[in-house]
Design a protein around this nucleic acid. Sequence first.
RNA 1: GGGGGCGUAGCUCAGUGGUAGAGCAUCGGCCUUUUAAGCCGCAGGUCUUGGGUUCGACCCCCAACGCCCUCACCA
Length: 542
Amino acid sequence: MTDDDRLMTQRLKKRDALLEMGIDPYGGRFADVQASAGLRRKAEGLDLQPGVRSEMTARAAGRIVLLRLMGKLAFLTIRDATGTLQFGISQGDIGEGWPILKELDLGDIIGGDGVLGRTKTGELTLWCNHLTVLAKSLQPPPEKWHGLTDVDLRYRRRYVDLFTNPQVRDVFHMRSAIIQAVRQCLVDVGYYEVETPVLQPIYGGAAARPFTTHHNTLDMDLFLRISPELYLKRLLVGGMERVFEISRNFRNEGISTKHNPEFTMIELYEAYADYQVMMERVEQMVSAAFEVSARLAVPRRTVAIEEECLRLGREQGEEAADAYAREQHLTAYREARDAIGRGRMQTMFHGKILDFTPPWPRRKYADLLQEYAGVAMTDSDTVRKKAEKLGIDPSGKDTAVLVNQLFEATVEHHLVQPTFVYDYPAAICPLTRRHPQDPSIALRFEAFAAAMELGNAYTELNDPQVQAENFRRTVAGEGEETMAVMDEDFITALEYGMPPAGGLGVGIDRLVMLLTDSHSIRDVILFPLQRPQARGDESAGG
RNA sequence: GGGGGCGUAGCUCAGUGGUAGAGCAUCGGCCUUUUAAGCCGCAGGUCUUGGGUUCGACCCCCAACGCCCUCACCA
């Protein structure tokens, strides 16, 4: 028998013991549960002194994360969605319910009824006169101090990660709040939220390889969308003048700390606008997202770090406390918190302060290329020479493609502070309107922060003939951003007339990364794609 | 795909060319104000897998598998 089996067997025995006592180890509805955080606030109001029990009754529930049995008295710490709370149980108070305690384990979900009080040391405690078993846990939880650290296991068993590592739950709480804020921000200025097909017979709207699938009844191959763009523009034709979609996109490409095969993007289109308006939309959405994330994060994080510093100072001396403060960027968090007070939108990312306060700097693509690569975008010969110098093979490539590679190699890593880079080479932008004075330039910008692409926007191309021509060229493989498939119906839609418009996509995952100081996209996606676990004997023999 | 790192008890991690250790969790005992509770005792391992070198491999070599980082690719 493996250790794993042994541990589960022991827990199963306890489950049976509960059943014998006439207790359902998987209790049902548990009405009127109070959140631990709410009880804490209430206790503040009561001015409870250490060692005193109040008259106030309360009911709480959560997972047992710590368990201390001391003969005829027990303390257990439960964790709910809002924090932790100590249950105190004395044999005298609980009487017949006492034997239940022996059958409880770390990880079980229980409810308690009792009165609020404080122990001698001041810890808020629910002194229980009744315990309800809500769910017996058969799997042993991870180590109580270190939690689950194995990165692979954390993603595979995200549920364990979530209930053992509170900061993980914070990140996803924040993700939810950020999406909500961004959505509300657009609804407030007259946008409709829509849903367009994920299963598409023709994919397009971005340069990426798609996933393919098959519909059985129609006997037809389909693609998972790489972008919602071409459908959202059809809605502009249809008269929906402001639309957005929070779109899960699927791209069959490499996986990295910045790329997951499925990722979330908010894409929006606004009739009679252009890419300049879209820059303002980026600033508005990011500001809204920043505000909710700052409200949630900074106080909580700062308080948690300060408490830990105090504890370390007490137990291990000031030096240890200082070291911890530095390690946790405490000073920077304080600065960030103060910055909000002054109306600045600053946050820590990778040990650097990013300032999202609008307006963000706006830099011309060509100027940045000149500044960091030392070449003029239009000077084909110099571009080729510079590319070769940097180890980029220029043979058979369009100048615009090389320019773009040069840009990525020389400029991008400098774009740490939020920045709009605008006016891209037209050859790599098949869906974008050209600059009226210079047809080699496309009215496109990308938003960068922390050297990462955060968003991408155009003044949309609404001339069906130019669009059809661009399709033909990209299908033929000219330029870099191949769409590979001609979408006839999209052209037909444009032929009916699409209002001039600005369009924008912002990577939600990356935005959440920036605002939660997460360095891998997997840390902001609940269940990132992973190779299936090879189990036991199936994996043997290589 | 290239380079680097990792894989040892359920969890978190040490470790040595002579068939393995700690803390936590588990199990048994004591304990009515604990705070990662404490004290005493027991148990728990195909050291990722497969080859090789060796009298002998968890350790050295080769390969495979998985994960992480990084470069390349990639809106």
